[in-house]
Nucleic acid binder design. Structure first.
Lengths: 232, 232
DNA sequence: TTCTCATTTTATAAAATTTTTACATGTTTC
DNA sequence: GAAACATGTAAAAATTTTATAAAATGAGAA
């Protein structure tokens, strides 16, 4: 059960957001000014903060920075004008996402869901650092030595190819969207096309798949992304 | 299981750090002043000390120096101002890393992990260096006598070249990044370009490799660093 | 000091990877 | 089936990383 803190001085918006967050079965806590919001954030450590940029008693930017200095809470910032977003980004406040008012509830919900997905992904990827040997059928991966072999033959992979393979092979059956992969492997600040992932998957497959027309290891989850075959 | 000692007089910070260190499954011990911290460090020999610079009863810098005089515990120093870091560096206190308050937990965790990785690497590099004779194909290394021969012929190596060769030849197949090599061979306080490593590897290869276009002993792990050929 | 040698820096060339691009091929939906 | 969209493929362009050689620096010995 996720806990969400709304820091916002407009009661109408609070109400609106609260209703829809409860639909997502989140617990909602509320603060109507910056200072109180910061205190609550530090005390309750919610999974997500919705943070308005203009607030009484303490600016939203400051609140964001202070929260981020101490803990790893996801933050979505609300701004009235899109120019403010530039300011927030320029200051590298470190929010996870930004929404300009007025916004559609549909969009808001989508973003909240996206944040939760990301947080879960990052958490999962932190856990699997320790596995050093992976083996499926005739594919073997030595994470530490950075070696990959197919049917006894040594395969040379580029850094990105290797990282993609290790990540996916560490979580067989888990589908990663292209943007998940970009965020995890390329980093959150990569700005390029999602198609880049296709290229790398394509080259990786060419190196490890015996039959390109029927991939055995790296499968396509249509409309979603890619996953490592869980039935091996 | 790693043991971490926190020496810090602010209970809030202690609490914060303790929670996140426990997430990394570390055992945490705490001291709230310099003297007590020093005693605990010497008694328990933790894997890592988190050491605030301003402390009651004994300055953090003094504590750091005294710990380092006696044992090789990793130390991360916390300072309120970035000027203090200059002072710490100027005094060559020998901390492994420095963080200015306020810091983000994200960053803190990343640094702690980095310290543990380095410690592991250095520990490993110490292990097999006790071997006094190494021999691969027609390359022979006498670690004790500091002599190297290729195809029966004696080769003169400079100190850095020799150290690089011994380290890598002691751990065939293990890839070392340029920064790993700088830290292990040059020392943690070297501040120069990673490119320096290339120069040394280049000269070392020129002396021991029969064919520069296809190195036999020292191989490049593209995008990572160098390793000694494990298939000899 | 002057010389020598190891080391570091710098510059440039070469190699490999990564990203982009363009287009082909599939898949879904109406 | 056709339109819209998602994925596959291959190759050119751009970027990053590594190799190599040569010049500058610095430390120590004669």
């Amino acid at each position: 059960m996720k806990e969400v803190l709304i820091i916002e001085d407009d009661p109408e918006i609070i109400n609106l957001l609260e209703i829809h967050l409860q639909d997502l079965s989140c617990t909602v806590i509320k603060a109507m000014d910056g200072k109180q919001g910061l205190d609550l954030a530090l005390e309750k450590k919610p999974d997500l903060c919705i943070l308005d940029i203009s607030l009484p008693s303490m600016d939203g930017i400051e609140v964001c920075q202070k929260i981020r200095a101490v803990q790893n809470t996801s933050i979505i910032m609300l701004t009235a004008k899109s120019e403010e977003i530039d300011r927030v980004i320029g200051l590298e406040v470190g929010a996870d996402d930004y929404i300009t008012k007025p916004f559609s509830i549909r969009e808001f919900i989508a973003r909240v869901k996206a944040i939760f997905r990301r947080a879960k992904l990052i958490q999962e990827s932190m856990n699997t650092e320790s596995v050093s040997e992976l083996s499926f059928d005739d594919l073997s991966i030595s994470v530490e030595k950075r070696r990959v072999g197919v049917a006894g033959k040594k395969i040379e992979l580029s850094p990105k190819e290797f990282e993609l393979l290790v990540l996916m092979a560490s979580h067989p059956g888990k589908s990663y969207s292209r943007s998940d992969l970009l965020r995890i492997i390329w980093g959150y600040d990569f700005d390029g096309y999602e198609h880049t992932v296709n290229s790398h998957i394509n080259r990786l497959r060419a190196k490890i798949e015996p039959d390109m027309n029927e991939p055995k290891f790296i499968l396509t989850t249509w409309g979603v992304g890619y996953k490592f075959n869980e039935e091996l």
